[in-house]
């Protein structure tokens, strides 16, 4: 499916257009954010199949509740937040199914095709991120996706900004250690 005649404008204008029934505007938002949302889901879930399901679920929920989107809010923060909560729900179910300890899954980004695409530096960084504990992994992924917008990251994770900064600080420390040891 392709989206024809994409309307111009920023995310807010596209959301407003979608709210007014111009569904192709939502298609543009999907095209803009599906990779970023999938990246967040994949890094959080560490399972390509579940990441795909979470991404689809996030966009479906966003579309269904478009009217609840507050004017002035950032669409990226909103969709990341929906996706993150979808991941948390699945992680909770996975945890209940498999007992208290979550099995450490294989890094899906280390498959032969994915590895071939990357240079050594980014491959090492990917591996180091995948090895982080879940809370740090998600924080560092959002940092990668949203930049240094701590307030937006805090909104997605539903955490105080101070906690987000601490998570990022610790995540970077762990990454540095792992990258130096490699």
């Amino acid at each position: 499916m392709t989206v024809s005649n994409p309307p111009e404008g920023d995310d807010g204008a596209l959301v407003a257009a979608a709210q007014n029934g111009r569904s192709e505007a939502f298609g543009i938002l999907v095209e803009r954010y599906d990779r970023a949302v999938y990246t967040l889901c994949l890094r959080t879930m560490r399972d390509a199949e579940e990441a795909r399901d979470c991404t689809q679920e996030a966009f479906f929920k966003a579309f269904r509740s478009l009217r609840t989107f507050k004017p002035g809010a950032k669409f990226s923060t909103w969709i990341f937040s929906i996706a993150y909560h979808a991941c948390c729900d699945r992680l909770g179910r996975r945890k209940r199914r498999s007992g208290d300890e979550l099995p450490d899954r294989a890094d899906p980004s280390s498959g032969p095709a994915a590895v071939a695409e990357r240079n050594d530096e980014s491959r090492a960084l990917h591996a180091a991120i995948a090895a982080l504990p879940e809370k740090y992994r998600t924080a560092i992924t959002l940092y990668h996706l949203q930049g240094r917008q701590y307030e937006e990251i805090a909104r997605v994770l539903d955490l105080p900004i101070g906690t987000v900064k601490t998570h990022l600080f610790r995540a970077k420390e762990l990454l540095r250690k792992r990258l130096v040891n490699q």
Partner: peptide
């Protein structure tokens, strides 16, 4: 960014 599996975008657009 990670590359989504083929068909994911189509599936999202179809379901929305």
């Amino acid at each position: 960014l990670e590359t989504p599996p083929p068909g994911m975008r189509d599936a999202i657009l179809r379901s929305t």
